[in-house]
């Protein structure tokens, strides 16, 4: 697993450190560092919790997503 942290974007809040059950991240000099990337099982909780959207995972299996509301998507397509 290749996990990248945008050091400029990371605000050092430590939410990913607290949330990860496998202790993949550590705060070093107020920036999150993935110290155990091989322990990552790809739940992406850290993505969801990161307020700065500073994380990027490569080589991950993306689960099927059926929960996107079709009507919301249709409306978004009209706007975006």
């Amino acid at each position: 697993m290749d996990i990248r942290v945008d050091k400029d974007a990371c605000v050092g809040c430590g939410l990913c450190v607290k949330d990860c059950p496998m202790h993949v991240y550590e705060l070093q000099e107020k920036v999150s560092v993935p110290v155990r990337p091989n322990n990552c099982m790809g739940c992406l909780s850290c993505h969801e919790i990161c307020p700065a959207q500073a994380l990027e995972h490569r080589g991950i299996y993306a689960a099927k997503r059926h929960y996107i509301d079709i009507k919301v998507c249709e409306m978004l397509r009209k706007v975006v």
């Binding site: 059950p21 496998m22 099982m41 790809g42 739940c43 992406l44 909780s45 993505h47 969801e48 991950i60 299996y61 993306a62 689960a63």
Partner: peptide, 10 residues
Amino acid sequence: IVHTGPNACL
């Protein structure tokens, strides 16, 4: 349940 996430659960 060890952990639940948006993409996978342990």
